[in-house]
Computed example of a mutant assay.
Amino acid sequence: MSFTVEERGTLHSLNYRLFFKNTDGKYVSPFHDIPMYADESQNIFHVVVEVPRWTNAKMEIATKDPLNPVKQDVKKGKVRYVANVFPHKGYIWNYGAIPQTWEDPAHKDEHTGFCGDNDPIDVCEIGTKVCSRGEVIKVKVLGILAMVDEGETDWKVIVINVEDPEAKDLNNISDVRRLKPGYLESTVDWFRMYKVPDGKPENEFAFNGEFKDKDFALGIIKSTHKFWKDLISQKTNAGELNCKNTCVSPSDSPYHCSVDQAKAIVGGTSPSGKEEPIPSSVDKWFYYERK
């Protein structure tokens, strides 16, 4: 199964949208229509890459927009970029999400004591390749970090692309610690500090910032898939989330929409235009003394 993307609007502007199509050319939601599993028997998952490594534009699946295209996050009316907190430049992994998962904001997590953040579960892909925005990759799970972001549970799953040359040697979080010394510590450091330049406090973590292993991570992912199933079948109140989809069986989801309706949604957005320049201020480095 493969997917392509269609850009609409102007990159690095408020109207930028990245829509997804399947192999049949049908528009699909990266939140609801791309299967969670690439190979369930082997625990291989699909991941939608929102932010390529080393970039700063905070792109994300637009969970409240019809068909959930990828768009740039907005803060105070301007598109958002993450700051560089020395020594990190932009995101230090390919960052994305596992489709057909949802961290339920009404569910208090037994491990963190906080409810979910209302988004698909986040992923840090640690392979050698810098992926493209909107690329859908197949990954194996290595471990997970339990971040608490402004009072919400925000799991970060550590994965590697199954096609990566290092994938054969990385099978659990202990392998990452052994073969990529310092990477896990840098990951905690990045997530702890990345909002501080915006005047916000450091993020906190369950388990004292320790990573849990593959089996634990698989359990968390599967629980968020169950929450998503309840969401898409209307057993759970969606709130402001947009659950329109084209591939979930109409018998399983009252939010199913037709091919023509999906085309109309995409056609109602701005046509593709010339890329906006990234502000020079995005290259600034911020320095903080570590505790």
Rank of each mutant, 00 (worst) to 15 (best):
M59H: 08
N56R: 09
F20L: 03
D65L: 14
V70G: 05
I61H: 01
L67H: 01
D39G: 04
N22K: 11
Y27G: 00
V51R: 05
E60L: 08
V48Y: 03
Y37E: 04
N15F: 06
D65F: 15
K76V: 10
V47S: 02
H46E: 01
D73P: 07
G77D: 11
L18D: 00
Y37K: 03
A57E: 09
V49M: 00
P30F: 07
E50Q: 08
G25S: 12
D33K: 02
N68F: 01
H32Q: 10
N15Q: 09
P66I: 05
V70D: 04
P52N: 08
K64H: 11
N15L: 06
F45R: 03
Y37G: 05
G25I: 14
W54V: 06
M36I: 13
K78I: 10
M59T: 05
K71D: 05
S29D: 05
A57K: 02
K58A: 09
I61T: 11
A57N: 05
E60V: 09
I61Q: 01
V79I: 15
S41W: 00
D39L: 02
D24M: 13
M59L: 14
R80E: 09
N15W: 02
K26D: 13
I34K: 03
I44N: 00
K26A: 10
V49P: 00
K26M: 14
N15D: 15
T63N: 09
H46A: 01
V51M: 06
K21D: 12
L14Y: 03
N22C: 12
D33V: 05
H46V: 02
K76Q: 14
V47D: 02
M59D: 06
D33L: 03
E40R: 15
K76A: 14
P52M: 06
F45G: 00
T23E: 15
F31R: 05
M59W: 10
R80C: 06
K76H: 14
E40K: 15
P35H: 09
W54T: 09
F31A: 04
V51C: 12
I61S: 00
K58D: 07
Y37A: 07
A38T: 08
A62P: 07
